[in-house]
């Protein structure tokens, strides 16, 4: 079964997209507190979509406040059989 760790993928995305090294991420991490502006945050979302071959509806983007929220949305969109963890 394929496993995806949202915190690991998020950290990788932040490094690639925003040249930012993030550590200590958890489900409670509030994305807006990480010092990235809304454009950089959206670039991270686009990174997730590209790597996981999913499309997060725009109307759901406003509900993503924490990495836990992101994990819940990703888990809904990935194919069956893919396990999404924090």
């Amino acid at each position: 079964m394929q496993q995806i760790s949202v915190t690991e993928l998020f950290a990788r995305a932040a490094l690639e997209v925003d040249n930012r090294k993030l550590t200590g991420l958890s489900g409670e991490t509030v994305i807006s507190s990480l010092g990235m502006d809304s454009v950089a945050t959206m670039e991270l979302v686009a990174y997730f979509e590209e790597k996981l071959q999913i499309r997060i509806p725009d109307e759901d983007l406003g509900r993503v406040r924490t990495l836990g929220d992101l994990k819940d949305i990703v888990a809904r969109l990935v194919p069956p059989g893919v396990q999404v963890t924090l």
Binding site: D37, M42, A46, D58
Partner: peptide
């Protein structure tokens, strides 16, 4: 309508 996913477009629209 929808938020761009192309990185340059995202940056330009955000700007």
């Amino acid at each position: 309508n929808f938020v761009p996913r192309d990185r340059q477009d995202l940056r330009d629209v955000g700007w």
